[in-house]
Design a binder for these strands. Structure first.
Lengths: 346, 346
DNA sequence: TGTTAACACGAAAACGTTTTCGGTGCGGAT
DNA sequence: ATCCGCACCGAAAACGTTTTCGTGTTAACA
């Protein structure tokens, strides 16, 4: 077991000073051709690589980006990570991920752990619990310490930082307009409780679309599920609630669901009620997921372009990191959604 | 913007030495009650937190685990990460992830980037390209530098390190035995080309199960797809190949697929051929995926317990890290698979 | 011969910690 | 008066770099 070789060891072996070795390796003109060659040869032989930690300490830059997300077993979030990793790597950065698991405490702890020198900046999506408690002190504190943050998807306006979001309202409008255009008269929405920003925005889009098409919204067509139900364990409860929706609206012929699972479950319920998709009832989901593509029938969906979100977020952050000291100016980037038409609509 | 406060600043403000501050904060008996209180109060006021990088440099430990996986947009891998993160955090470790994207070069580059001091050890799953080229020098090099590695899922026996795997052979046998037990006479396997270890092992399990039940394997029942086809873009090609399988075996009544996508696609093809699942043909997949659960019909599958794999891998690694110097002894941990029965089998 | 400039290299500081090893001052014992 | 021990604190090294500044040697030049 040969430990990693350091400048000091090379210096000792070659009987020169540490500075000479360092300079030689960095091709400084100060060092004679002769010693430069000698040092380089030796370094190559022993496979010398500068120690990242020492460099980080010296430069006060870690070349590392911290990611905090609520959950990683999730198609959307993993796509975002992929996007971040892609451009981070291209710029010589690494990514270190922390999972909040939708918990406020874990979010805070994770951020504190990373903020003490381990990373140069954050890219994050806020946990549900944090959104619920509306306690954002940890974001403000890290920002005030000079550490830039980029938020994506689940954001809050109060925080002064760069943001990358999807136009949830517009995406939802597109979907609902599609249903209307396809002849649906009774369009329901299956959404989450209001405190999660994206649920609220998509509901807003639903309402706006109805209004634009002069359709009176009906309370019975708006199903707000507790979003613990996304966690796959409460599937039965979710199914029950959707069944109620069907029973209360016999003439239901269109469903817009704010996520993939709700949509898939709605299709399952529809089938149970003997309704044919898309002839009797049409369904549109909202997500980047893998379920939509491979379900039967495959699901028409509003794609969020998770990877692109990640890429943009990383670009914004890295720009901030490499242009420090310039006047602060935060932007909110909106990624266009795309309606991907599949078999669940006409 | 107030930068993070350091020991030196506290020392200057309080007119004591750096050492005194450090000791006071760590409750050293060397420092008088008085100054201890004073220092602590000041530190608390300015929200002092020791700089991780400096600590890492001093201790030559980063308390960080490097993960290298081929792909993150993948249910199995993200579950593994979740497991790793869980126990890592419990022990005060962070995780930093690198994606090889199934490329040998990216795997090497990522490892080199992290091995220079950024992390204490690796948890990784080998990329397909690496398995194909059988070039494992980067693993051996990092190990010989004293950095422990734990491999999971896709491993090679040549490398001397801890490993966490699923009993692919046994899992496959369970699945095929189930099909046999359910009365299937013509059981096909849809698998990958041989160089990916898991595909090979699962095929082996398939063959062993047949043998145990005195069934002659037939070459036409073994479909080896190029595994670029998992990438969702070659779906049509995959579908074609499976159609050929159906055409060549009119009496096909059981399918064992080595991953979720193959299984789902097989069900799609079956439906196209007018076969009813599970009455005419039964299907079993191999994975932890989300598709299986929500497909119609839902898919009977061999679960790999990805999260548990991650947890065990992290435990192995952390044990190694915290018991350095003890005699080397590598173990290979086998996580039991579980056959989850759903609607695609009788 | 004395001055200067170029060249080649080393010492040391700095990044932020922790820890070892010495102090200093003081009270009590001899 | 001398010595010892104790309580309290600081200097300095160490982790591995990079970089600034200084210094010695040599050759060129007046």
């Amino acid at each position: 077991m040969k430990r990693k070789v350091t400048l000091k060891q090379i210096a000792r072996e070659l009987d020169v000073s540490i500075s000479t070795v360092s300079k030689a390796l960095r091709d400084s003109k100060e060092i004679s051709e002769d010693t430069r060659e000698k040092v380089k040869a030796f370094a190559k032989l022993y496979n010398y690589r500068p120690n990242n930690i020492a460099l980080s300490l010296k430069n006060r830059k870690t070349k590392t980006i911290g990611i905090i997300i609520p959950e990683i077993v999730h198609h959307f979030f993993s796509k975002v990570i992929r996007g971040i990793e892609l451009v981070a790597n291209k710029h010589g950065y690494n990514v270190i991920v922390g999972l909040s698991n939708e918990s406020f405490d874990k979010e805070v702890i994770n951020m504190e752990m990373l903020a003490n020198g381990s990373i140069d900046g954050f890219i994050l999506s806020i946990s549900k619990e944090t959104l619920l408690q509306q306690d954002y002190h940890h974001f403000n504190e890290t920002i005030s310490q000079g550490m830039p943050i980029v938020m994506f998807d689940r954001i809050v306006n109060e925080i002064h930082c760069d943001k990358v979001i999807v136009d949830d309202v517009k995406g939802a409008k597109k979907a609902v307009a599609k249903l209307v255009g396809n002849g649906c008269k009774q369009i329901a929405i299956i959404t989450t409780k209001d405190y999660v920003s994206v649920g609220r925005l998509r509901t807003q889009g639903y309402l706006e679309a109805l209004e634009e098409h002069k359709i009176q919204p009906k309370a019975s067509l708006i199903l707000k599920v507790d979003d613990k139900l996304v966690s796959e364990d409460y599937l039965d409860v979710l199914e029950d609630e959707i069944e109620q929706l069907f029973k209360q609206n016999k003439k239901l012929d269109g469903i817009f669901a704010v996520n993939e699972l709700y949509a898939i479950t709605a299709m399952k319920v529809a089938r149970k009620f003997g309704k044919h998709i898309p002839n009797d009832i049409q369904v549109i989901g909202f997500t980047d997921g893998v379920l939509s593509k491979h379900a039967t029938p495959s699901l028409t969906t509003v794609s969020q372009h998770g990877q692109e979100i990640g890429e943009k977020a990383a670009e914004l952050l890295i720009y901030k990191l490499e242009h420090e000291g310039e006047e602060e100016h935060f932007q909110t980037m909106v990624i266009e959604t795309e309606l991907i038409e599949r078999e669940s609509t006409k």
